[in-house]
Design a protein around this nucleic acid. Structure first.
Length: 631
RNA sequence: GGUCCUGUGGUGCAGUUUGGAGUGCACGCCGGCCUGUCAAGCCGGAGGUCGCGGGUUCAAAUCCCGUCAGGACCGCCA
């Protein structure tokens, strides 16, 4: 940390610019032009405009394309991180695609009629060029061009080539801008960035951990942290008061489109706070990050990018489940679940009876065919619904009537009352589930996503805090309540007296941040009082000895004076992927791994040699196997 | 641990259903031509263990079994 109490800013990566002020007057962003000139070049390709006409410049980059017109004229499109620039060579060009060259030339307007509006530099070109080959290159395995669809294994094996393509350049630049904005936001809110150990201690809890054998103490292991959870609570006991970290986390679980072994979190913890304090700090950082993404995307597309509108709301878990049937509601989707218990009270139809009766209206859904409806019924059942009743809302003789296999069991007044209670009009489809509360709302919530996403035409960002999650979620193998978040989550103060008597009904001070149906992160206020912690451990079946063995060092720390504290963690990879519109986080990670955890670039994971195994206290036979080959 | 999809010159595909000579398309690559192109154009050429192994068959890219690799999802991710 620097002497003024703020983290050093080296991560901005602008040290090339020397001692110049790294912040533009009137704004936090690096001014255009910073870091562009080096010993080998005076400008970046993509920055040259008609206003630069007449300047003698030097640019460096990769040959993107070459167009030769006989022995007297050739065009070379030169590419660097900023974009393309057309260089005109009088004569033939001894340079091929992906060769690294330096071009010295004079900026000039293109002859009238030859401008290229598809290029940011399309009004100008470089004339009187002197081209110097800095390095030759093999022909690229795939075109360095966003248009080319390339097999992902090939892209990962040659990731350094893939990274030259505009898409990944954009994604990594947006990512850097978002992380920078987060650091500034946390900085300005008085948070202190602290690094916590990568070599941490095993905690038999939660996700599978990556183990690191100890050389000095054979047979013992460190683990890579699943998150800095316990470390940051120790920092609160240590009086840091407001901590954050852009933290690398590791979980040895199967990989998915939105999951890598290693991922990055904005990790936050505050002392003397309530949930609202955490939400305010994190909201600011996330909103600043999204704004930074929009700024970079706007610069990269030269004005053709229209930033989506962004909103932020809050609701309790109970409300989210009641209205949207999920704890991560996608607020872009139309419609909410409706309570139809009153409208269907007293009906004889078994499928419409239950402690809870809820419905969902799909506007214009009456045109769905029998096959689609059957699929919806199957989906609802797979999601736990006892069944799904559907009604096509129609009009006949000025009255609303319902078309459904169940219709004849309901009298005409009931048809009208049901449609009215659901807010359904002729042409709509009404879906109804009756049963236990969760078996009722969750299937409808899934159908809302299925039906809504298909017709979604809304690029807005709808952020939502979901608060007061249940403290316990179901029961474990031995019938005890299972911690929904983690065992240090603070119960809701109003529910404390029901902890032992009605644990399933106890709310917690745990919360999620949701963006368009994606969980961006979660957090909670922690238990800092030993008596409450003991009661929760007892409910979870963790005895005093076990608690001491597993969390002894944390509990000991708490006994030395633990402030009330709470925090949050935001998944940066997901946040960036959402901001740039990527389907998988692999597109916002420089060197991701495949679904089987391999890195096609380096060949990792690899066997170790016998000597290294011996030093680590591992059996030398481990090194004898070699990975299979194929493909 | 499971379900599903994919694997054919350097790249992306078609061919597989209904077995018959590595048959085709686009891009790239190499050579030639071409003085305003811009995914330049025109002419010519090279380039293949049809992921790998086994089986059925007179004959397999094609059918069967196994296996490897990649992807989506379930389990898993307090």
């Amino acid at each position: 940390m620097s002497s003024d109490g703020r983290p050093a800013r080296e991560e901005l990566g602008h040290e090339r610019a020397g001692g110049e002020d790294q912040r533009a007057p009137g704004g936090p962003e690096a001014p255009v032009g910073l870091g562009e000139a080096t010993a080998l070049r005076t400008h970046l390709c993509g920055r040259l405009r008609a206003a630069d006409e007449g300047q003698r410049v030097r640019v460096c980059g990769w040959v993107a394309r070459r167009r030769e017109h006989g022995e007297h004229l050739a065009f070379v499109d030169l590419r660097d991180r900023s974009g393309l620039l057309q260089c005109v060579v009088d004569g033939q060009v001894d340079a091929r695609p992906e060769w690294v060259v330096q071009v010295e030339g004079t900026v000039r307007r293109r002859p009238p009629g030859t401008e290229n509006p598809a290029l940011a530099t399309g009004e100008v070109e470089l004339g009187d060029c002197v081209l110097t080959v800095l390095n030759r290159a093999e022909p690229p395995a795939f075109p360095v061009d966003d248009r080319a669809e390339v097999d992902e294994t090939t892209r990962l094996r040659l990731r350094y080539v893939d990274l030259r393509r505009p898409r990944l350049q954009r994604n990594l630049r947006v990512r850097a801008a978002m992380v920078g904005a987060i650091r500034r936001a946390m900085d300005e809110q008085g948070f202190c960035e602290v690094e916590t150990p990568m070599l941490w201690t095993p905690t038999p809890e939660g996700a599978r951990e990556f183990a690191v054998p100890s050389r000095l103490q054979p047979g013992r292991f460190y683990v890579l942290p699943q998150s800095p959870q316990i470390a940051k609570q120790l920092l609160m006991v240590g009086g840091l008061d407001r901590y954050y970290q852009i933290a690398k986390c590791f979980r040895d679980e199967d990989l998915r489109a939105d999951r890598q072994f290693e991922f990055t979190q904005l990790d936050v913890e505050l002392s003397f706070c309530e949930p609202a304090d955490v939400h305010a700090a994190v909201s600011r950082a996330v909103l600043d990050a999204l704004a930074a993404a929009d700024r970079v995307l706007g610069e990269l597309t030269a004005g053709s990018y229209h930033p989506p509108t962004t909103s932020l709301t809050s609701m309790t878990w109970r409300e989210a489940m009641d209205r949207y049937g999920t704890d991560k509601p996608d607020l872009r989707l139309p419609g909410e679940l409706v309570d139809l218990a009153a409208a269907l009270a007293g009906t004889e139809v078994r499928a419409l009876q239950g402690p809870c009766v809820r419905g969902l209206v799909q506007r214009g859904g009456a045109t769905l065919g029998r096959g689609r409806l059957d699929a919806l019924v199957e989906q609802a059942k797979a999601a736990g619904a006892p069944g799904l009743a559907w009604f096509r809302v129609q009009e006949a003789d000025g009255r609303v009537v319902l078309d459904s296999p169940l219709a004849r069991f309901l009298d005409p007044d009931r048809h009208e009352a049901l449609a009215k209670a659901a807010g359904a009009a002729p042409g709509d489809l009404l879906l109804v589930v009756a049963g236990e509360w969760r078996a009722c709302v969750e299937p409808l919530g899934q159908l809302r996503v299925t039906l809504g996403r298909a017709a979604l035409d809304d690029d807005s960002r709808r952020l939502c805090w979901v608060t007061e999650f249940p403290l316990f979620d179901g029961v474990d193998d031995e019938g005890r309540p299972a911690a929904a978040h983690h065992p240090f989550t603070m119960p809701h103060p109003e529910d404390l007296d029901r902890l032992e008597t009605e644990p399933a009904s106890v709310r917690s001070l745990a919360y999620d941040l949701v963006l368009n149906g994606w969980e961006l992160g979660s957090g909670s206020i922690r238990v800092h009082r030993e008596d409450i912690q003991r009661r929760i451990f007892a409910l979870l079946g963790i005895g005093p000895e076990e608690a001491e063995a597993r969390f002894g060092f944390l509990l000991a720390a708490f006994r030395t004076g633990a402030p009330p504290h709470g925090g949050f963690a935001v998944g940066i990879d997901r946040l960036v992927a959402l901001a740039v519109g990527e389907e998988t986080i692999r597109e916002v990670v420089a060197f991701p791994k495949t679904q089987s955890g391999a890195d096609p670039l380096t060949g990792a994971p690899k066997p170790l040699g016998p000597r290294q195994l011996r030093e680590l206290g591992l059996p030398p036979t481990l090194g004898s196997s070699s990975p299979g080959s194929g493909g």
